[in-house]
Design a protein around this nucleic acid. Structure first.
Ligand code: MN
Ligand code: MN
Ligand code: ZN
Ligand code: ZN
Lengths: 137, 137
DNA sequence: AGTAAATTTGCAACAATGATGCGAAAATTT
DNA sequence: AAATTTTCGCATCATTGTTGCAAATTTACT
């Protein structure tokens, strides 16, 4: 059984053409992807709505995760941690290159804990670092 | 001279009605504000475009800063660090309450440094913590 | 204070992004 | 292979953000 098919089945998603192609596109990509990347750069011609719904279900199943940005653009990347449906537990740092503007998961760099002021109860923390990536230096 | 007027003049912005009102709204607010908050909750009736342009110029002048979120919503808050036009240097942690969904600048909590893999050169880091705020607990 | 110059505002128009309802198509189950 | 369930693609709509331009306002100048 092909890898993409296996991933979809394991996550209780029916195996459709769009899902297979989009999942393969994630597997082939180094960095994170935006909706527009998938719509335009897959070579395929999926409906915009199909792409939205596919990404949504991947997120729900814990297959991909969102990456926070300042510029109102959503980026998605494969979860390499063992996320479950309805509950992600990625806690790695993300890097955004100011040169090539690629967004990269630093899977081995965990988000450090910080001491919060009295009264605040932390649940989850995200960290995004900007700078120059290895390829651009 | 009124406080808002003083702030605008200091940042080389002409003192207009919208700018004064929006700046005052920031000064009165505890947490961060979204575009929609300003458009709807000021009581005033600014044109959408005016609000966009006002926020843009405040960001450019280093008066307010952006806060990254996962859900594609931009939040703005007053800079309490000494930011300059074209170059912000806020480096405090932000807290988003899962209950009341307020976004709060933790001005006294600085973003910790992390060790990045070889090749990556950091420039700036952002950290956002989710959880329950003091008011909601 | 009064006028000219510069800046900002509001409107219209447009583009991009995202959500929803629904019948047709495809995938899964029996 | 037929029935059932799920997904897809299209049409339609809502929200968010941008741009050009004339009118209004603010600032600079005499
Ligand atoms: Mn990641
Ligand atoms: Mn802040
Ligand atoms: Zn790069
Ligand atoms: Zn709260």
């Amino acid at each position: 059984m092909k890898q993409v098919e296996e991933i979809l089945k394991r996550n209780h998603l029916s195996v459709t053409d769009s899902r297979q192609k989009i999942m393969q596109f994630f597997l082939n990509s180094k960095g994170a992807l935006a909706h527009a990347d998938i719509e335009k750069k897959t070579g395929e011609n999926f409906d915009r709505v199909t792409v939205y719904r596919t990404l949504q279900s991947f997120v729900e199943k814990g297959i991909i995760h969102l990456i926070p940005t300042k510029d109102n653009s959503i980026k998605y990347a494969l979860c390499k941690d063992d996320c479950e449906a309805g509950h992600h537990h990625d806690n790695h740092v993300h890097f955004i290159c100011d040169e090539c503007s690629k967004t990269i998961c630093l899977d081995d760099v965990t988000v450090p804990q910080v001491k919060l002021p009295k009264g605040f109860t932390p649940q989850h923390a995200e960290m995004v670092v900007n700078g120059i990536c290895g390829d651009c230096k």
